[in-house]
């Protein structure tokens, strides 16, 4: 079983709800990111998405855009992100770790080189929000050859595309809850249940919901209709507010969110 699949599987082999926090690597320092991820793991995170910052993150709302700017201003690079994963594995982190970044970050590094380095440091997968189904082979094939899973995204506008995307998906399916960019939302109006149903008709790959989730109630509601909840902006905002002293706040928040997700 891959580490990602394991994150969605309970000890008795049944499907388990996963809580998936996101953090931007190097916001404001890589040391902070490392400590925050260790805090998340201690608080019950099942998988962590690590953002490699990009200068022009077109799928992100203002909160994560600013995190990207802070991280790049601090000088963080793709190599630093790989080194971070290597250190987290040395720290004893066993849950799956995936990178969330943009096509150009991977392309400019060289997809094959990126995949090889990822496999070497113990990375499990990659999420590329600007690589849709039609463009994915260019990335998926080198990543898969190195044993890494490219996560597929589906959106509220995907409709007839869901089946095709889900049937070819690996790791987990990232179900985008809402139109627009990342960021906290008061209400999620999309019929998530119907989207997840379409995914399940095509694959048994788990399906987690992200975009707009910030409260334990939202996490529980989304996880109840799917296999997990993904939270980014809300965590990045805590980091922005508390900086280096953020660990207790992150741990407390992730614990509440993970509990709500697991109980769904």
């Amino acid at each position: 079983m891959t580490r990602i699949k394991n994150a969605f599987t309970a000890a008795d082999g049944s499907r388990k709800k996963a809580f998936i926090p996101f953090i931007t690597c190097g916001d404001p320092t890589v040391g902070t990111t490392e400590k925050a991820i260790l805090a998340m793991v201690a608080a019950g995170a099942d998988l962590v998405e690590i953002g490699i910052p990009f200068s022009d993150p077109t799928a992100e709302g203002p909160v994560i855009q600013e995190a990207n700017i802070r991280a790049l201003a601090g000088g963080v690079t793709t190599d630093d992100a790989f080194d971070l994963v290597a250190r987290l594995r040395e720290d004893g982190v066993e849950i799956p770790l995936v990178f969330m970044t943009y096509a150009n970050v991977v392309y400019s590094y060289g997809v094959g080189r990126f995949a090889a380095r990822g496999a070497q440091v113990g990375l499990d997968g990659v999420i590329l929000p600007d690589v849709p189904f039609e463009e994915k082979a260019e990335f998926d094939e080198p990543l898969a050859a190195a044993g890494l899973e490219l996560v597929s995204l589906i959106a509220p506008t995907s409709h007839d595309r869901v089946r095709q995307i889900a049937a070819a998906s690996k790791g987990f399916v990232y179900c985008v809850s809402s139109l627009g960019v990342t960021g906290v939302r008061t209400n999620i109006t999309t019929d998530i249940g119907a989207m997840v149903e379409l995914v399940r008709e095509a694959t048994d790959v788990p399906c987690a919901v992200g975009f707009g989730i910030s409260t334990p109630e939202q996490a529980a509601a989304m996880a109840a209709k799917s296999d997990g909840a993904i939270v980014g902006s809300a965590i990045v905002r805590i980091l922005a507010e508390h900086g280096e002293d953020t660990m207790p706040y992150v741990e407390e928040y992730v614990r509440a969110m993970a509990q709500a997700t697991h109980a769904a």
Binding site: E135, P142, A155
Partner: peptide, 27 residues
Amino acid sequence: MENSPTSRGRFGDFGGQYIPETLMNAV
């Protein structure tokens, strides 16, 4: 490195549709 065989709108190696899934049905 090869472009994806399913990619549309190529000018030689260039072009394609590197956009979020949310926009795919729109394009």
